[in-house]
Nucleic acid binder design. Structure first.
Lengths: 185, 185
DNA sequence: TTTAAAACGTACAGACTTGTCTGTTTTCTG
DNA sequence: CAGAAAACAGACAAGTCTGTACGTTTTAAA
């Protein structure tokens, strides 16, 4: 296995630490140690810890969406695919000991001035929101208010992830799926 | 206005700081400064920052439930009261600039060894869960699976709070209420 | 009024934080 | 092969953090 280049090594190391240990629990020194990179090199690629976090989130979102889309591709487009999102959440979160959403976990407790992080979180959530709305519009009848339902499904997703993290169990994901199914009827 | 005693002053100061600034952004020194208490006195009452957090959460939960119950008391018991929870969330969160749930905000990023915090968060969420189930059982027909629906409503609540925090808007709370109403039909 | 507890201010330990700087070595490119 | 760029190790600044120890003063109870 070939070693990644410096920048990628930094992102990989930071991603793992930020997600599993938490943003505040992860110091710059831990990142450079894990990445096997000198501090000088790190600051050549990123002007601050916040800057690493932004790239971490962007990259994570991209990979997550790709993985999810792939998982959903076996289902027919539209409502069925939207419902299967909850299966994907279950599949994903059970593998990471219900560590929750990297985006939720980072915005709840960051220094007041680190607004770029909050912005990228919002942007990614909007992206997911759009995905759901687009899917719903593929199969839904004209009478259905897909905009409204996409809002409700977003709430279900965020809540299921958070509650499964608190409870370290998958019942919130199962419940959210059931609720989603009923809302789409 | 009479000054609170030392212990209460510590809890008051810590509560405000933990909630509005965040647990990790709040150092012991800020707490004692705001509380106008010596460090020695603080450590006489609490053996650690974690210990303060536990009391903060317990007290916050108690006050929150009281406030909510009071808000809901004008509504008839049962389903109507459960639906009105979302009005209460709206009422509350719009006042604190959608700062979200103090419990969610603290478990997402704490040192790995601080398990007492995680435990108290779970305990309080269970308490809320029980409240909802009890209300539902007051008016629901036998055919309704109140246990299942209470799970789904918990998901809606957590998601609405989290998403309103991310988006700094109340539409998730409005959407969650609508979803709740439909699920109860 | 004596005695004990509690609160005080402050200094301190020791470890951690982010970020800068220096000087050396490696790698890449023209 | 020469020169520039990049990566390296590590010291350092300036500050933060939690938690302890000190001697002094206030408070409260016996």
């Amino acid at each position: 296995m070939i070693k990644e280049n410096v920048k990628d090594r930094i992102i990989s190391a930071a991603s793992e630490l930020f997600y599993f240990d938490g943003y505040n629990q992860t110091g710059i020194n831990k990142i450079i140690e894990k990445a096997e990179v000198s501090k000088d090199s790190m600051y050549r690629h990123f002007r601050s810890k916040e800057a690493i976090a932004v790239v971490y989130l962007e990259q994570r979102h991209k990979a997550w969406i790709t993985d999810m889309t792939n998982y959903l591709s076996v289902k027919p487009a539209g409502q069925e695919r939207v419902i299967a999102i909850f299966d994907y959440l279950n599949h994903w979160l059970s593998q990471v000991d219900y560590r929750g959403c990297g985006f939720q976990n980072i915005i709840t407790d960051i220094p007041k001035d680190q607004n770029s992080i909050k912005e990228v979180v919002r942007k990614c959530k909007d992206d997911m929101h759009r995905f759901i709305l687009d899917e719903l519009n593929k199969t839904s009848s004209e009478s259905m208010d897909t905009k409204e339902i996409s809002n409700e499904i977003m709430v279900l997703i965020e809540g299921a992830i958070m509650l499964s993290q608190i409870q370290k169990a998958n019942w919130p994901l199962v419940a959210a799926k059931k609720a989603c199914e009923r809302l789409l009827k």
